[in-house]
Amino acid sequence: MSNIILHDFWRSSASYRVRIGLNLKGVAYTSHSVGLPADEHKSADYRALNPQGFVPMLEIDGHRLTQSLAILDYLDATHKEPPFVPHDPAERSHVLAMALVIACDIHPLNNLRVLKYLGRPLGQTEAVRDHWYRHWIAEAFPALEAMAARSAGRWLSGDGVSLADICLVPQIYNARRFDVPLDAYPTLVRIDATAQNHPAFAAAHPDRQEQPA
């Protein structure tokens, strides 16, 4: 079997998702750190591999896969257990909706490249950028809490881990980094606590990854 390489950055939310997914599926991989603050993802060498210049990128089975949810979909199609989405169409839609609240409605607005653009060239202070970050989490988390409360068991959708949980945990990590109050989201906090005690999630945590010197 060829070496599986994950190009990631230790604190990238999207990379965190893929690390969780690889661990859940029991897929061994080698990590290659791409320094986002130093703009290593913009280098000619990296863009030759991934024209968009983002992380994560997964080299697997002769493919170079990009976009975290697309990578997770590939892993789910090629490694059946545990399934990341339910078989029931309505439950599947619900899991995807919760995942997309995070991946489409929160994360793009709080991505590092957006925060850097707010700083320069737009000239916004760090305090303003932090307020921006917290605002978009606070906009989405109440709806996500309500969505989760009606379906949650041990995990966000019943008692099986799903794509929604894989997306939630990195977002809770980010919320805590930026001091977002979480008392109003007891279901989300409970699910995150469950995840922290799961080996696949714990091993993917940013604090356990290679960090720049």
Rank of each mutant, 00 (worst) to 15 (best):
R47D: 06
P170A: 10
R11Q: 14
S2L: 02
G153D: 04
H205A: 13
D76A: 10
H135C: 08
V128F: 10
G21L: 06
H107F: 08
A140R: 12
I106K: 07
A193Y: 01
L144F: 05
A28D: 15
P82V: 12
A204Y: 04
H63N: 13
S93W: 03
F9D: 10
L36W: 10
D183W: 00
A149V: 05
K42R: 12
V34W: 06
I137G: 00
G158P: 01
R134I: 07
W136F: 14
I191Q: 06
V161L: 12
P121A: 12
S157D: 06
P83S: 10
R150W: 00
R17P: 01
S93V: 02
I4V: 15
E139C: 09
H205N: 00
P212F: 03
K25Y: 13
Y29A: 10
R150K: 11
Y74W: 15
E91L: 14
W136S: 05
G62M: 12
F84N: 07
C104K: 00
S162N: 08
Y133H: 14
D207R: 04
L122R: 12
Y74T: 05
Q209Y: 02
D192C: 08
P37Y: 12
H79E: 07
P82G: 13
R154F: 00
R19N: 06
P186Q: 10
Y185I: 04
C167M: 06
A195S: 12
A175M: 13
S15C: 13
H131S: 14
V189A: 05
I102P: 01
L112H: 04
Q124S: 02
W132E: 08
I102L: 15
P199S: 01
S2T: 09
D165S: 09
Q124N: 08
I106G: 09
V85P: 00
P142N: 12
D76C: 11
A127F: 08
N50F: 01
R113W: 02
D179K: 15
L156V: 05
P199M: 00
L22I: 07
H87C: 01
M1P: 13
R190F: 04
S162G: 07
G35F: 03
D73S: 15
E81F: 04
I106M: 14
A48W: 05
P82A: 13
C167A: 14
Y117R: 11
L109W: 00
W136N: 06
H7Y: 15
P186M: 12
V18Y: 06
Y185C: 03
C104Q: 07
P170T: 11
F178N: 11
M98S: 03
A127Y: 09
Q124D: 02
A175C: 15
A140Y: 03
P186N: 11
S31C: 02
L36I: 15
G35S: 13
R177I: 14
L112E: 02
A70R: 09
R176F: 01
S31E: 04
H79L: 08
A99E: 06
T66H: 09
V34D: 03
R177N: 15
I20Y: 11
K42Q: 10
V189L: 03
E210D: 08
V161E: 07
R64V: 04
I71G: 05
A193G: 08
A195W: 03
I71Y: 05
A195M: 09
K80I: 03
A152L: 01
H107V: 07
T78D: 05
L36P: 14
